[in-house]
Design a protein around this nucleic acid. Structure first.
Lengths: 230, 230
DNA sequence: GTCTATATGAAGATAGAC
DNA sequence: GTCTATCTTCATATAGAC
């Protein structure tokens, strides 16, 4: 699990695993360019309308391509959605492995993780919303990921927190529920921004809003679980 | 106005005026019973599949009624969804007014609010998921509620927190972002339970899970914002 | 590989009998 | 008020020309 999280140009990742049909020999540059455009369009449309509300026609329009091309490259709406989810999951993988490690100071680690999660919420809100929508409706498409990869990562983080607790640097908070809280607070700045902008009477979340978010979440988490001078 | 749904202004309609068609004099007991069954079925189906993925046929099946009855009582899928959202919003209204009042001790108030929100997450998870799905996809149906009622309630809570801060009983945390954190943490136990049960290797969230949730969230919030001995 | 045209089925909504 | 049968629209998916 290479911590391949380059913070600055953390743009759209590679979309490699998209061989559309058996028999396609070399997916050339135009191939990758089209699949890329389709995936970006699909991210917008699925995020805005949900899986059921999204239509292949809308995705095709957003991608600037004819509708059949989507089926040519991805086979079906469900397969396109699955490919998109696969892409999105790769974004979720590495922040914890980068920040939540036993060698770090707990306060540094937790605040860095919070900052990284908020950065994703800001840079890729549609990705976060698609993931959230998938969870809302039962997570059928990502069951294997949740039971496998995610659970393993949570188990690793549990050993890190256990180390800190044994060193007297962290209060005895349940690892899993603390992670649930961290995830929900940070991702809500993507998932529920529609509510936030209306409460805050603004058009979109800005620098100041994310700064306040980071300050608030960090205050809760650091004061809540980190033991000073440990 | 109430008689003919013109399909345009009929966004969030008043559910309690259950006069589906002009000429209905007294909505009797069977009327209310049918609308109730439909709303309960709709809550299940909309929560499980999202607005776009839900079908009137599935709702009718879940309600044990023929499809046309749904249109007879609610006019359209969108109107049924709006009526359901209206119902759900009424659940969201009162916990804050009950618990977050200046006369209370901040620790008591906040932990009581957290407990109440978690109780809703447990008792009405589908309602929470429908609300979350509405926010995820832009909150078009509840724009007026968010800009009006909700914003007013947030403003009231802000005065409560300001009082506590002035009394030296609460740290200077941003009211709105603290509320965002409280909402996201508590509601995630309904909205994202599909993820939680897989991480926790269980079939459904139980007493112990909600107890751990409450302990974790309260620990973060109380230590984060309440000043002891204030 | 790419797109026009279209098949096929499903979904929202209604007509009209009872 | 209630339900059977059906209309219309639109979505996914494909056939087949280029």
């Amino acid at each position: 699990m290479a911590s391949e999280r380059n913070g600055e140009s953390g743009r759209v990742t590679d979309l490699t695993t998209t061989a559309p049909k058996p028999g396609l020999a070399q997916p050339g540059a135009p191939h990758r360019q089209s699949t890329q455009k389709i995936l970006e369009a699909a991210e917008q449309v699925f995020a805005e309308h949900g899986y059921g509300g999204a239509t292949m026609a809308a995705i095709a329009r957003a991608a600037g391509l004819p509708k059949p091309n989507l089926h040519y490259y991805f086979g079906s709406k469900d397969a396109l959605y699955a490919a998109l989810l696969e892409n999105i999951l790769s974004l979720w993988l590495d922040d914890a492995d980068l920040w939540l490690i036993a060698e770090r100071d707990p306060a540094t680690a937790l605040s860095g993780y919070i900052r990284a999660k908020l950065a994703w919420a800001r840079e890729r809100p549609e990705a976060s919303r698609i993931f959230a929508g998938e969870l809302l409706t039962g997570a059928r498409h990502i069951d294997a990921y949740l039971r496998g990869d995610l659970r393993a990562r949570v188990a690793r983080i549990d050993t890190v927190f256990a180390t800190w607790r044994a060193q007297g640097r962290m209060r005895p908070v349940d690892t899993r529920h603390l992670l649930f809280c961290l995830w929900s607070m940070t991702q809500s700045y993507a998932d529920f921004s529609a509510q936030m902008v209306r409460v805050l009477e603004t058009d979109a979340l800005e620098d100041a809003d994310f700064a306040a978010a980071e300050a608030t979440i960090s205050a809760l988490v650091l004061r809540g679980v980190v033991i000073d001078g440990g």
